[in-house]
Write a protein that binds this DNA or RNA. Structure first.
Lengths: 234, 234
DNA sequence: GCCAGAAGTTAGGAGAGACAAACTTTTGAG
DNA sequence: CTCAAAAGTTTGTCTCTCCTAACTTCTGGC
């Protein structure tokens, strides 16, 4: 047997930065439609616009984005594949950490942010199997399936419900731990049914009844929480 | 709230290479005593001696190794801490993947090789807790405890046992998947008791009885398998 | 429709980590 | 003891990804 290096890292693809750019662009495209600007990408990734500009150019050469200088970028199908793969990893890992290892809800995000780039396809599959091919992560976000199809949302921001309207807490942005902690402390989680009791004007709180208790939720929180609207006969 | 970047990677320590060097040096020190040579380090990591030489110099500046040009390197206490931390991560992850996710024995190594650099201290602790603070990984290797103390081995290579001697299969090098697969197929695993029936000369096989069956194990395998010798009255 | 400020790009450079190739030191066979 | 091979080091380059700073293009308020 030829003595191959014991711990050699086969070919160490250096995709991590590209994966993060793809994910950032995907998420920006998801809200703001059309091409996303260099500034927005840079901000989301915490780099300077100079860095983002250079990287977008490189990603365009690699076929990950379509990019017109001064006009912004959008993902190619290949770029979208990369983004969805990372999102699937991220959310599977979040759910796995929360369910299997009982890691607190507000801490799974940052761990997943790192690990999503480093699990093999085989481990991804084992995790998905262990969890029973789940469709939502602990924040209520949908998990792309094996073929990277995402079940589309029909949620709206909680702040858009009128007093009296009912809904189901669908998900909340997973990137702000203090919000997550706040909700966890009050035992509010995805799947909970809710009724808007009243809404105060001028950035005042939205009063929401969840599981029999009334919570005053600040304007920012009400923007971040997504709910599925329920009509009265559901 | 100031809009901090959503997915910013806090300060992205670039320690991965240093961690791998520390681990490689630790493992080389463990067998070959004294200072380890540039060549040996380079080979184990699959880089050229030039690269290893440069890196050892840098690690010496950072206080990870003591290094005398042309004389080899050895870990400082700090370097040993880094190595043991990685080994603890590696073995906890191996055991976790095998036990909790039922990943085959021969595939956990390469997955752990990557992940060991990317799990947080918090996740390390959750995994250790889930597994009940284990002391051995699925290859039988000891796992450093929280304070990085290793329970020392008193094992010998299977090839050193004389015919008639008894022992317990303690561990096997985890880096050669084909050996691992071979053993797994025959349902031979750490903890199994064994008796050497006979040993053929000139690199011939060692005949070993394990769980009532006799297996002919090649010379290379008999070198890689470590056993705890049992005296007749145990 | 002008032009300041916002958004974007380019140029130059840093530092990590690797490689190849030239060079130096150590070692061991005879 | 000698000297060639083995082991180790140095130098010059490369790639990747980021930064800062200077420069260019776009946009909207007047």
């Amino acid at each position: 047997m030829a003595s191959r290096a014991h711990n050699a890292h086969p070919k160490r693809r250096t995709n991590e930065a590209a994966e993060n750019y793809a994910k950032a662009i995907y998420e920006l495209q998801a809200k703001g439609e059309r091409a996303v600007g260099t500034k927005a990408v840079a901000e989301r990734l915490g780099v300077t616009t100079g860095s983002a500009s250079g990287m977008l150019k490189r990603l365009a050469e690699e076929g990950v984005v379509e990019y017109e200088p001064y006009r912004g970028a959008r993902l190619t199908p290949e770029g979208e594949r990369i983004a969805l793969e990372m999102i699937r990893h991220h959310r599977l890992i979040e759910l796995f950490l929360a369910e299997v290892l009982e890691m607190p809800w507000d801490r799974v995000h940052s761990e997943a942010e790192v690990l999503e780039h480093h699990i093999s396809e085989e481990l991804e599959e084992l995790i998905a199997a262990k969890l029973g091919q789940p469709r939502r992560d602990p924040h209520g976000d949908p998990i792309p399936d094996r073929d990277l199809e995402v079940t589309t949302e029909d949620s709206v921001a909680l702040s858009e419900l009128e007093p009296g309207e009912r809904g189901v807490f669908a998900r909340v942005s997973d990137s702000d731990s203090s919000m997550l902690r706040y909700l966890a402390e009050r035992e509010i989680q995805p799947g909970d049914g809710l009724v808007v009791s009243s809404r105060e004007p001028f950035g005042g709180p939205v009063m929401v009844e969840i599981a029999g208790r009334i919570h005053p939720l600040g304007a920012q929180l009400a923007e971040s929480i997504r709910v599925q609207r329920k009509s009265d006969d559901e």
